[in-house]
Design a protein around this nucleic acid. Structure first.
Length: 534
DNA sequence: GCGATCAGTT
DNA sequence: CACAACTGATCGC
């Protein structure tokens, strides 16, 4: 390895998040009044749940004359939980991993590749795994044992939880098949992150430090991202991370990664007084006047265009009817925004996926992020030739590697918006998650053939459609969801989903519910006696 | 009443 | 314990 070839320079968070001089440190403790309010709220919530549960118990008792468990996380005595079923069953559950195109070696010398060459781009070179590991040793935390990387065709699964996000189905034990696939896996990044984004660094960017005491406005003390980043470069050497397995030598090796946080909690101000927050530097794309998923900071100085990567609450937080700037998003996200947030339509601009367009002489391409419907990554090509990728929330897949844009351009700067960088998170392909779900439900149905089954799928506003569609299709289920989500699903323009959806909650086989309503009191309220839930 | 904020939930 | 992505209650304007 020489220079930065095959390496990513990772900017430590403490540099990116350096506290500007003008930020005042505000009180560290929650004021007593708020504490009290919090307690009152908590008490109210508890009371509400108790009452709900009490009522629910009565309903169930009246219907079934069977006394149900008083534990909230337990099903009524006449109901089974499929999740407990499969947790015990999963230990012997095996999944055959199908050979994927990405496991087939291409025998292409990456150094000889031409930019327009066809074929699958190897974002991670399977040949470099061992080299990568040895190089990473210097930065890996001493106590962190690395996982075996060689794939097997059959893996043992210890824990599969249908109640979890199917995207989160993890292999706690066993070996990942991903090591022989050329996908960007979390594991490939894990070592870097453990070193770079360390607990010692994070507190610098504590909630209270990113707190403005003034209104955001023309004189507002806002972080100037470019200068801050430039300063970071000068003041502290980059953490050099060997990632020679990321992309070929002629294309697509990001020279820098900026860790991006999207959570609304990242710099939550304290107190009730309305004070705007400071915009963290990573919300603004370096060298541009574009802000991504940054709506809770008022008008960000020097930002002319705003982007929304997808319609999830922690990304559109702060986006209200008052918003008055050009706002770019995918067509699907645009329909959702129009439906739920009354922003003047003249500010909403749709970006076609994979269709580059220019803004301020910067070429922008929206790429499918493989997250929820309408979720995109953003690829910026600056006049200088510098290419910047903002991932938003995304799910890496080997299909992504085939995208021409990753073949044709280097990624010089990467805004990586992700949380699951720890080795404890192991992600399989989305289709595999769905297949496992179907297999488990199939097995459950077989064992409970005589029972009526109420299928319950927890969901955010959008994002679980493929799972419940697969269930509905295979088992011919009628689906019901809450009116709010129904409205959102209608925005997706996904006819197959609408075919399955019915307005009648009582007759539906499969309920798509908000996560917060997945507790048994809530579920039972909507279910009939002698019903098996999962 | 709207929007911001916080606590609590899965 | 962690986390994302919520919901609902409360507070400030």
């Amino acid at each position: 390895m020489s220079g930065n070839k095959g390496k990513i320079r990772l900017k430590p968070l403490h540099e990116l998040q350096s506290t500007p001089e003008h930020i005042e440190l505000t009180e560290l403790k929650t004021p007593e009044k708020k504490k009290k309010a919090g307690k009152v709220r908590a008490a109210t919530t508890q009371k509400k749940h108790k009452e709900l549960y009490k009522n629910d118990q009565q309903i169930v008792a009246n219907r079934t004359a069977i006394k149900r468990s008083t534990r909230k996380d337990q099903p009524p005595n006449n109901q089974l939980r499929i999740d407990s079923f499969f947790k015990s069953a999963a230990k012997t559950f095996k999944v055959e991993t199908l050979p994927s195109p990405s496991t087939t070696k291409l025998n292409i010398n990456t150094s000889q590749r031409k930019p327009k060459q066809k074929g699958r781009k190897r974002l991670f070179d399977e040949e470099t795994t061992s080299e990568s590991e040895s190089n990473l040793k210097s930065v890996r935390l001493p106590k962190r044992a690395h996982l075996p990387r060689k794939a097997k065709t059959v893996m043992d699964l210890v824990c599969i939880d249908l109640c979890s996000d199917p995207e989160d189905v993890r292999e706690v034990k066993g070996e990942s098949p991903s090591s022989e696939k050329t996908i960007i896996t979390k594991e490939d990044f894990q070592s870097q992150v453990f070193v770079t984004i360390s607990p010692q660094i994070e507190p610098v960017y504590s909630k209270r430090q990113y707190r403005s005491t003034e209104k955001i406005g023309s004189q507002a003390p806002v972080v100037e991202s470019k200068s801050l980043l430039a300063t970071a470069k000068v003041q502290s050497p980059m953490v050099e991370i060997p990632l020679q397995n990321l992309a070929g030598k002629t294309s697509g090796t990001p020279s820098e990664i900026i860790a991006v946080g999207a959570s609304s909690k990242e710099n939550v101000p304290i107190g009730r007084r309305r004070k705007s927050r400071l915009c963290p530097p990573y919300k603004v794309i370096q060298g541009t006047t574009f802000a991504v998923d940054g709506f809770q900071f008022g008008d960000i100085p020097n930002v002319t265009h705003y982007f929304l990567t997808h319609y999830h609450a922690d990304h559109y937080v702060g986006l209200t009817r008052k918003f008055q700037h050009p706002l770019y998003m995918s067509p699907t996200t645009a329909r959702l925004v129009r439906t739920f947030i009354p922003i003047d339509n003249k500010y909403i601009f749709e970006m076609e996926i994979d269709n580059p367009f220019k803004l301020n002489n910067i070429e922008i391409t929206a790429i499918d992020a493989n997250h929820c419907p309408g979720a995109i990554m953003l690829f910026f090509k600056l006049p200088s030739g510098e290419c910047i990728l903002h991932t938003g929330d995304f799910r890496a897949s080997f299909e992504m590697e085939s995208l021409p844009i990753f073949w044709n351009y280097n990624v010089d700067l990467l805004y990586l918006d992700t949380t699951y960088l720890s080795s404890k998170y192991e992600f399989c392909h989305q289709t595999e998650s769905i297949d496992r779900t179907l297999a488990l439900v199939r097995e459950f149905r077989k064992k409970n053939a005589l029972k009526r089954i109420l299928y319950v799928c927890g969901s955010y506003i959008i994002g679980k459609e493929k799972v419940w569609q697969a269930l509905a299709d295979e088992f011919n289920l009628s689906v019901w969801t809450e009116p709010h989500r129904r409205k959102a699903i209608d925005c997706l323009q996904w006819p197959e989903l609408n075919l399955r959806l019915y307005d009648n909650e009582d007759n539906a086989d499969l309920h798509i519910l908000t996560m917060g309503r997945l507790s048994y009191p809530s579920i039972s309220k909507n279910s009939l006696p002698n019903t098996t839930c999962f």
